[in-house]
Amino acid sequence: MSHKRDVMIYSRYERFWHWSQAFLIFTLFFTGLAIHGTHHLVPFGLAVKIHTNAALALIALWVFTTFWNFTTGQWRQYLFKKGVFKVIRFYAWGILFGEPHPYKKSLQRKQNALQSLAYMTFMTLIGPALWSTGIAYLLYNSWSHYAWSTTGLWIVALLHTAAAFAMGAFVVIHVYMTTTGKTPLHYVRTMITGYDSIELSEVEEAYIEETKSAEMR
């Protein structure tokens, strides 16, 4: 027999990481669009100041989170999993007709195959494209004396812009996906409280109760 139990699947650090990262990304996107000239809701100078400081904060957060991911072994959550197409098929079709999700969440596998792939892309492509070009831009004056700096700045700026649009599209879809849980706010609540209802085997349940290796209620 297996039971559904409320288990803490997102630790305090993971939630802190997620929400501070979310806040910083929204700030960066908003001020970034102001610097880009899309809107004038913040004056340029202030937008640059906020954008720079938020970027530095996000880089610090990412450095620490990378360290955390490797020391806790959580990085394995992001590895490629089989069954991506089943998940894609589910979100494109099955979900509309109430089919069950093809993927079972477990303590060891918090993310479905599509999620892992998306977050992996986020962490290894979009993120690095943004911070590498952003840092290069911040340090422009240390390479502005080279003959290629004029072209270089164009490339840096366009890559940064392209990556920012990719990030924007990612966030739109990501936010929408949070509404696909049991109730529209289920996933958001999970990310706030850290608890989700997970199907546990009797052995797992007993193990967790005995060892307190995860918080369960």
Partner: peptide
């Protein structure tokens, strides 16, 4: 290149397309 003034029209078009497409 000067931020706030310059950009690529093509990139912007694709970018906004991706954003609003999503």
């Amino acid at each position: 290149y000067m931020p706030g003034r310059d950009g690529s029209r093509l990139l912007d078009a694709l970018g906004y397309l991706a954003l609003f497409g999503a």
